[in-house]
Design a protein around this nucleic acid. Structure first.
Lengths: 131, 131
DNA sequence: ATCAAATAGATGCACTTGCATCTAATTGGG
DNA sequence: CCCAATTAGATGCAAGTGCATCTATTTGAT
């Protein structure tokens, strides 16, 4: 818990120092850019990021205001919406990744080697089993 | 990050299901009970729990209102305060521990063995180095 | 075909957190 | 000894989160 808290804080600090938005924004943009069509429905982002529905809804409000994503109506399911990454969003994602990747390298990559990383990954998946 | 998020959420859920306060309250009470004199100054709790100063200040407000801690003036340093665990606080700490320990057992103890736990602990301290 | 139940997403309200700043007290350099 | 710098802690305000609820739409059992 402590290690995670410290590492996460270090990442957020790195981003903030460059006047970039918090990691949560990156997570959303990453998922959108990973999607074949470059767009996802809110509930799909929800599943992938573990964000709560109402929090995502509001994060999307902010991201939309910042013009990083757009919301569009969904033809097949009129309850739903598409969330679409804009060009500005892609640029922001890239800008964040530069900083984020460097911080990951410094705080993780340089501290454990590949074998330790896979040990860690194994332990984490054990702990996650059933959650 | 994900594993931590899921585990923490599981712990908080367990507490909430028993109408107990969040883990942060437990952390404060644990540190207080660990202190020889049964009391600490806010900044000491701050160091031990990694909580931000203003957040702790407000958490103490809430805990004081719930009569789990008391604040008293500090004789040697008039800027400071003592935070003292009340009897009610000790009882609450014990009540939370029952639930917390059970959740830890279920979500951690049953999922990894002692060797894996010490591997994990080793990895975490590597990652924390310098933070 | 119909209507209750389920699903997608938004929103009002209370609570928590972050940030900056404030007051009061202490410390340390000259 | 004095005053600037530092430290302890509190607090006003803005932003984010949790919770419950709401609307709109879709689904599925009859």
């Amino acid at each position: 818990m402590r290690t995670q808290q410290l590492l996460l804080a270090a990442m957020e600090r790195a981003l903030k120092a460059e006047n970039l938005p918090p990691l949560g924004w990156y997570d959303v943009m990453l998922e959108l850019s990973r999607a074949e069509s470059g767009r996802l429905r809110p509930f799909e982002i929800e599943e992938r990021t573990l964000m709560a529905q109402h929090n995502l809804s509001r994060l999307l409000d902010r991201m939309e205001k910042a013009e990083l994503v757009e919301r569009a109506v969904h033809a097949e399911d009129a309850r739903g919406r598409w969330v679409i990454l804009t060009a500005k969003g892609r640029a922001m994602q890239a800008a964040m990744w530069r900083v984020y990747a460097a911080a990951l390298q410094r705080h993780v990559g340089e501290k454990i080697d590949d074998e330790q990383a896979s040990q860690l990954s194994d332990l984490m998946s054990r702990l996650t089993r059933g959650l």
